[in-house]
Write a protein that binds this DNA or RNA. Structure first.
Lengths: 244, 244
DNA sequence: CTATTGCTTCGTCCGGGAACGAAGGATGAG
DNA sequence: CTCATCCTTCGTTCCCGGACGAAGCAATAG
């Protein structure tokens, strides 16, 4: 939700380590059914001795992943709550390799990732790259446009003053859901995007919100923001996808 | 979403193992910012030698967590996509210990977990326990009520035939979002819940959908379903919360 | 009471993997 | 061409932690 909840503060390694062991993972997935299971039963399911299972359960308990309830000489373990289950499910989702989407689907998804509109402003890789380019070239400072920025934007035909006059927020960051980085929103974002379309640097693509970067746009943007290496308009680079 | 997406098939341990190492976790959190970073930079940030970082990056690449783009003699690494970022954030959320909710809040949440309504039928721990009790005592078979069940339900005043007559689905499972296990929904679920309230075994609690199990309800339900150990109406048990 | 069962604790062994330095491509600068 | 930089691969060391059996505690049965 909020973009300012950085993860930096929390130690994720210890949490992951709890799940990283195959035996503990087996125990946790067994518990994912929701029922409380006895320690012995879990040992059997995971295929280890009672002593080993006990040690693992102690660690899971300490880590807050499970709770235990004693009933006579049995000890029933269960997942501590929805959060624990959620972690396991997310991990499983990543672990399960994407089941080869259809070419059409993947092509469309791919294009939406590249560039699309978010309401009326540019989003996707292109939107994020544009925002970062503006930041790094000193055009934007906080939620304001610098003198440098004003010149640059005026140069391509953006009426900065006009955008500032509206009741709408001027240049807020808008978090991009695919990139997890901000792009330019608000009145200024809309004004810039309008220009990009007018000049034919982007044009509507296949599908509702898709946009395509044109060759002209690629050329012009690369000239406008030299030194960007990861932007869609940079010269083609060698991409190494993970081995599957 | 769907309850039938079991996690059993996917191996979560290898995925978790990738994040479980402190150095790799440092690398991943550094990349969580979204920017692509050079291998050397990541080594510096993680506080390890270039050789070590390279090995880690190779594993992350193989696991599909990052992608690499070669630019001259540099190699820029970045998170492979939104899924990778999501895993890290969920882990971080769990890793960060719950920031001591106010007593009032936690009490309310606690009560909603215990028993609440889901539309017009019983949910929460009590709802799940009731459903399992009906299952295990042979009252329900699939989406039907057995002869045993019909007698038991008639005994407490539930008009099973009446519930069957409606257009509504008769006795579907309804997945409980806090318990991640099904409770009884549909026409039968509503009929049973109505009886539970009429007889005063539950009564509306504090807050919109909260229900409270009364002493009478506890007594009667324990008598109705002997042998249940984890139900809210079972005799008090020793709970061991995880050490904090 | 003693016997049995269920689980934990203790002591021990052993393998996987994380770390580093040195050497080996690859790329760009002069 | 030659050197410097950036990164990877190789070879080595070393330590963490997961496995088991045996013994130690609870709790129920008879």
């Amino acid at each position: 939700m909020a973009a300012d909840h950085t993860v930096r503060d929390a130690d994720i390694a210890p949490v992951a380590a709890l799940i990283a062991d195959p035996t503990r993972a087996a125990i946790l997935t067994a518990l994912l059914g929701g029922r409380a299971l006895a320690a012995g039963e879990l040992a059997r399911l995971a295929g280890v001795s009672a002593a080993t299972a006990s040690a693992h359960l102690a660690r899971l308990l300490d880590g807050g992943f499970v709770t235990v309830l004693r009933q006579g000489r049995h000890r029933y373990y269960r997942l501590s709550g929805p959060e624990a289950a959620e972690v396991l499910e997310v991990l499983a989702r990543v672990g399960a390799r994407p089941p080869v989407r259809s070419l059409r689907q993947s092509r469309q998804a791919r294009m939406l990732e590249e560039a699309r509109t978010c309401y009326d402003h540019l989003a996707g890789k292109a939107g994020v790259a544009l925002f970062e380019a503006l930041r790094e070239s000193g055009c934007l400072a906080g939620e304001e446009v610098t003198a440098v920025g004003e010149r640059l934007l005026a140069g391509i035909g953006v009426h900065v003053a006009g955008a500032r006059g509206t009741r709408r927020r001027f240049a807020p960051e808008c978090l991009d859901w695919t990139e997890r980085r901000p792009h330019l929103g608000g009145a200024l974002g809309a004004a810039v995007t309008a220009v990009l379309l007018e000049r034919g640097w982007f044009r509507p693509g296949a599908g509702p919100r898709a946009l395509t970067l044109t060759d002209e746009g690629r050329r012009e943007l690369a000239a406008l923001f030299p030194g960007q290496v990861t932007a869609p308009w940079s010269k083609e680079l060698t991409w190494h996808s993970p081995v599957t």
